[in-house]
């Protein structure tokens, strides 16, 4: 598979065209804004929690196919996950997109990631890693701040 084919896999293009959970969420427990100052990509992530579990996730924003597809897939993947499970998934995805994880050599990771493996093509494009990881950093930020009040938006930025 060429680098470009690996980046723009069918599933990525499909999520870009028809992003899942692309809506404003009323009564969310967490609202976080993600922003990549380098390219201007921006998203808002909404989460609804029940105890320690994410029961709903949605997003809106503007960005490239990679950032949009990644956010869309993230909102699907994170629903039903507990906070530690979501954190573990973040780590897996982060390792995947930064090229630290070889899914073919790690059956457990392959199973955990499922269709999220499609994001792995980003690893060959260092400048696009942030596009894929922005939504995931937003997720981590949303789950990390216990004290954040309902609908209290906070800004996060990608580190360079």
């Amino acid at each position: 598979m060429s680098n470009l084919d690996a980046l723009y896999q069918e599933i990525i293009l499909e999520h870009n065209r028809r992003p899942r959970n692309y809506r404003v969420m009323e009564g969310a427990d967490r609202v976080v804004k993600g922003h990549n100052p380098l390219c201007g990509d921006a998203l808002t992530l909404w989460l609804k929690l029940e105890g320690d579990r994410v029961i709903d996730a949605s997003f809106q924003g503007s960005g490239c196919a990679i950032s949009r597809a990644s956010a869309s897939m993230m909102t699907e993947a994170v629903k039903g996950k507990t906070r530690p499970e979501a954190e573990a998934l973040f780590t897996r995805v982060h390792d995947l997109v930064t090229g630290k994880l070889d899914v073919d050599a790690d059956p457990a990771a392959k199973k955990t990631l499922g269709s999220l493996r499609a994001l792995g093509g980003v690893a060959r494009f260092p400048i696009r890693v942030k596009c894929a990881s922005m939504a995931w950093h937003a997720l981590r930020s949303a789950l990390g701040s216990d004290e954040s009040s309902t609908n209290g938006a906070s800004e996060i930025s990608e580190e360079p």
């Binding site: 470009l4 390219c39 196919a65 990679i66």
Partner: peptide, 21 residues
Amino acid sequence: VHPHDIATILDGDGVCVRAGH
């Protein structure tokens, strides 16, 4: 198509363009 995706695909063929604000 977002301009960043245009730039990445062009880059695949050695075409350097700027994408962004």
